[in-house]
């Protein structure tokens, strides 16, 4: 039944070469944990992507109940946690996942570093990786404000002061970051927009570049 539907589409659109080109490759021996257990370190990049995928999904589902307004944000998060069926699970996935992305990404980076995979010809992919790192830190910083509780408020207040302490331009950066001269309603809407629209867009573009470059250059050889 599924096979028939697939064949019907394939006959008309010839999709088989498309996915074969993406997915049908032998895993090199030095990257295959089934051959050498220690090769599991090569899984961290894929695991980072897996966790990012669940972050995007859980974030989309949180956004159905969340509202970025200073009088209601906290109540809407409380509603998700206390009232919505399994809302605490979805929020928990997003909450713990946020730390997990950073852990996985860091392990991935360590693997690339210690296998020397960043060397010529893969320098540009290291640079893209560092940009992804900053984007993910941006997710963490902006997402942390969204529940609008004490922790959120003061973490952002401190973060803003850090930005404000940059010589000369600091105060301007701080005002632009907060959308205002203090942490308030405009900060919350701004962080929400950055967290939910700007950063996901940037992240998807960077990930596409990351993966296209890996395809073009293949995975680095054994040590």
């Amino acid at each position: 039944m599924l096979k028939k539907a697939y064949d019907w589409i394939d006959e008309r659109l010839n999709v088989t070469p498309l996915w074969r080109d993406v997915a049908d490759h032998d895993v090199p021996a030095h990257v295959n944990p089934a051959i050498k257990m220690s090769a599991f370190v090569y899984c961290f990049g894929g695991l980072t992507f897996l966790v990012i995928t669940t972050q995007i999904l859980s974030g989309m589902f949180l956004a159905m109940y969340y509202t970025p307004d200073i009088t209601n944000a906290w109540y809407s998060v409380k509603y998700i946690t206390d009232e919505v069926l399994l809302g605490n699970v979805v929020r928990g996935m997003h909450f713990w996942g946020a730390s997990l992305v950073i852990i996985m990404m860091f392990l991935h980076m360590l693997r690339v570093f210690f296998t020397g995979a960043y060397k010529k010809p893969r320098e540009m992919n290291w640079v893209v990786g560092v940009l992804i790192f900053f984007v993910v830190l941006g997710f963490g910083f902006t997402g942390y404000l969204l529940p609008w509780d004490q922790k959120a408020y003061w973490a952002t207040a401190v973060g803003a002061q850090l930005a404000g302490s940059i010589p000369w331009i600091g105060p301007y950066i701080q005002t632009l970051l907060l959308g205002s001269h203090t942490v308030g309603a405009l900060t919350l809407t701004r962080f929400f927009a950055i967290h939910v629209f700007f950063l996901p867009a940037a992240l998807l573009v960077l990930l596409a570049l990351h993966f296209i470059m890996i395809r073009a250059q293949h995975i680095a050889g054994p040590l």
Partner: peptide, 15 residues
């Protein structure tokens, strides 16, 4: 395991 909480959460208004 990942998808079920999303579906349940989405259908919360029904109950």
């Amino acid at each position: 395991l990942v998808a079920v909480p999303f579906v349940v959460e989405t259908f919360d208004p029904i109950r």
